Simulated scan of single mutants.
Amino acid sequence: MPPQSHRELTVWQKAVDLACEVYRLTRQMPNEEAYRMSGQIIRCSSSIAANIAEGNARGTRRDYAHFISIARGSAAELETFLIIIRRLRLAPSDQIDDLLHQADEISRMLNALRSRLKNSGNGPSSLIPNP
Rank of each mutant, 00 (worst) to 15 (best):
S125Y: 05
P2D: 03
A50L: 11
E54T: 07
A103R: 12
V22F: 02
G73Q: 13
C44Y: 13
P131T: 04
G73C: 07
Q102H: 14
A50I: 03
A53T: 07
M37V: 12
C20G: 11
L99A: 02
G73V: 05
L90E: 05
I42R: 10
D98Y: 01
M109H: 10
A50H: 02
G55C: 03
A112W: 06
I83K: 09
I106D: 06
E21K: 06
L110Q: 07
L113Y: 02
N122E: 03
N56Q: 06
Y35H: 15
S74I: 07
M109W: 06
H66F: 07
Q95S: 13
R24T: 03
H6G: 13
P3D: 06
L78G: 15
M29Y: 05
S47I: 03
T10A: 15
I128D: 02
I83F: 13
I42S: 12
D17R: 02
R61S: 06
P3L: 08
W12N: 14
H101C: 10
Q95N: 11
M109D: 11
L18P: 11
K118F: 10
N51Y: 01
Y64D: 15
D63G: 05
M37S: 14
I42D: 07
C44D: 06
C44I: 15
G39V: 11
A76Y: 12
L88G: 04
G39C: 09
N111L: 13
I106Y: 12
A19G: 07
R89D: 11
G121D: 13
Q95Y: 08
N111P: 00
R72N: 06
N56P: 01
G55Q: 07
R7T: 15
D17M: 01
T80A: 14
Q102D: 03
Q40A: 15
A112M: 08
P131C: 13
R86N: 04
A75V: 03
I68V: 11
M29N: 06
A76T: 09
A53C: 06
G123V: 01
A71K: 04
R108D: 10
R87D: 15
L78R: 02
R36W: 02
A71T: 08
H6A: 11
R43I: 10
L82F: 09
